[in-house]
Design a protein around this nucleic acid. Structure first.
Length: 240
DNA sequence: CCAGACGTTGTT
DNA sequence: GTCTGG
DNA sequence: CCAGACGTTGTT
DNA sequence: GTCTGG
């Protein structure tokens, strides 16, 4: 029996998820800056450095309980609280356009919004699968808009999880992809994080505001393809 | 009322 | 949990 | 998102 | 191709 599987002969690779990989490498200075900017009351001394965040990884996110803003840790891939089991396909992205119509997302959107700090996110060019890193101009952190929930497994396990909200790509991202993560303008952070803000129409409006955040992108090594390659080289620009 | 689903992406 | 379909 | 597996039987 | 795992 030859060791060739059908896939090697038929190999047709479909692109699937939009924002399917990002970087969360938040060192002391950035952590300090973020804590001030977002008025976080409780955080860690330091965060795990993840240059290549893949679905199901644990990520840090800013959330609020009443007036108390803190850093929480969540599995990337939303598990609705009522799920009987962990969804087979991780719900890593949430379409902003239909968020209020989806039972899996609606309540989390109305009551449990978060911001996921990221250095930037990875995107694979459709034509040649060349990976790119997309980040804010300069070295400012990006904050990806997300929603979270808490899930208790039948065995008593407790898993907080989140999903990243997506929207149609702006002119900058368009050449690469149709979709992009929702990047709120900083003036909207307060409302976004406020769990008392629960008006569906007002919240939905936040999803339609075009981002004013200036972005830049550059190609990176295909090493990033493999989630276990998790080091600074993932972020380095390579020659075109 | 109960049963059953509950998601995204892109391409064809 | 919440919504849709029968 | 990409990577990697993808099967069965019974015997050692 | 389809599914699971990270």
């Amino acid at each position: 029996m030859p060791k060739k599987w059908l896939s090697e002969i038929l190999s047709i690779n479909k692109e699937k998820w939009m924002c399917g990989r990002f970087a969360q490498v938040i060192k002391y200075q950035d952590l300090k800056k973020m804590t001030e900017e977002l008025k976080i009351k409780e955080s860690s001394e330091q965060l795990e450095l993840n240059y290549n965040v893949a679905p199901t990884n644990i990520v840090a996110a800013v959330v609020a309980k009443d007036d108390w803003r803190y850093m929480g840790f969540f599995r990337w891939g939303l598990i609705p609280s009522w799920s009987k089991k962990i969804p087979e396909q991780a719900l890593i992205n949430v379409r902003s356009e239909s968020i209020l119509e989806k039972p899996s997302f609606k309540t989390s959107f109305l009551r449990r919004r978060c911001l996921i700090p990221a250095n930037g996110f990875y995107e694979w060019r459709k034509t040649d699968k060349q990976p790119f890193f997309i980040k804010a101009k300069g070295d400012n952190l990006l904050y990806l808009a997300g929603i979270y929930d808490a899930w208790y497994g039948p065995d008593g396990s407790y898993i907080p999880s989140l999903g990243i909200i997506t929207t149609s790509a702006n002119d900058f991202i368009q050449p690469l992809h149709e979709r992009m993560p929702l990047l709120l303008n900083p003036s909207l952070y307060d409302t976004w994080l406020n769990p008392a803000a629960q008006n569906p129409q007002e919240l939905q409006l936040l999803l339609t505001v075009p981002s004013e955040i200036e972005l830049e992108m550059y190609p990176v090594s295909r090493r990033v393809n493999k989630p276990e390659n998790n080091d600074a080289d993932c972020l380095k620009p390579i020659a075109h």
